[in-house]
């Protein structure tokens, strides 16, 4: 009598366990990363996944790290260029970012360019190229603050400089001109807006800010 009980019970239990085992086994197929082999797996996976335009060392789904924004100003009348950087090599948190002070000359016009980098990679990844590729979805905005608010910034590029654009040809801001005029010490704020859903109109910032840094400005 007991044997009969156990027979049925074992069929039941076996059936459930087999189906469960199958499901759990399937769920495990993606190889969770073990504690000891994180890096190994990561590298492997990346190699496997390098089937598109990704040639850097992180998952394509990961939000990419921007460590550095560099602004280079060249006096339009000639002279040596000035470069200031906002640099946060370990990303958000951790060590504080290093922010250069921008020293400009009064009554001078500059041609400016912007470079965006991920310097946590070797060699550094040039994110500027990605901004160029997605020119229609990005725009830099410039704010001159405090005593420096007398200075003016004008866009010196259009989306069509980088991509074959459809629709209105809005500025991108990777190159611009800065007229210092009689401005005094203050701040220069550089913002990179990402346009995903909301349309880019060339004037309005988006609700998704990729970069928002402020440089202290000294005017000589």
């Amino acid at each position: 009598m007991f044997r009969h009980h156990w027979n049925v019970l074992s069929i039941l239990t076996a059936a459930v366990f087999v189906s469960a085992a199958l499901t759990f086994a399937c769920a495990d197929d993606d190889n969770p990363v073990g504690p000891d082999d994180h890096d190994e797996h990561e590298e492997d996976d990346h190699d496997d996944d390098h089937d598109d335009d990704h040639d850097h060392d992180h998952g394509p789904g990961e939000a990419e790290l921007i460590t550095t924004l560099a602004v280079t100003l060249t006096p339009s009348g000639g002279g040596s260029p000035i470069t200031v950087r906002f640099r946060d090599l370990d990303g958000e948190g951790g060590n504080e970012p290093v922010v250069d002070v921008l020293a400009v000359t009064a009554q001078t016009d500059y041609n400016g360019t912007i470079q965006v980098l991920n310097e946590s990679e070797t060699p550094p990844e040039n994110i500027t190229e990605e901004v160029e590729e997605e020119a229609e979805a990005h725009q830099f905005f410039f704010e001159t603050l405090g005593g420096f608010s007398m200075a003016t910034v004008e866009y010196a590029d259009k989306e069509s400089d980088y991509v074959t654009n459809s629709g209105a040809d809005h500025p991108v801001g990777l190159s611009f001109t800065l007229s210092v005029g009689s401005a005094q010490n203050g701040e220069l704020r550089v913002i990179l807006s990402h346009f995903d859903e909301a349309p880019k109109d060339g004037v309005t910032r988006s609700d998704e800010t990729d970069i928002d840094v402020t440089f202290e400005v000294l005017v000589r």
Binding site: D49, D52, D53, H54, G59, P60, G61, E62, A63, E64, I127, E130, E133, E134, H194, D196, E208, D210
Partner: peptide, 15 residues
């Protein structure tokens, strides 16, 4: 969890 977008290309894996 999948992020809104990658800065380049199409998202093929979750964030």
């Amino acid at each position: 969890e999948w992020d809104s977008h990658a800065r380049s290309g199409v998202i093929v894996r979750p964030g």
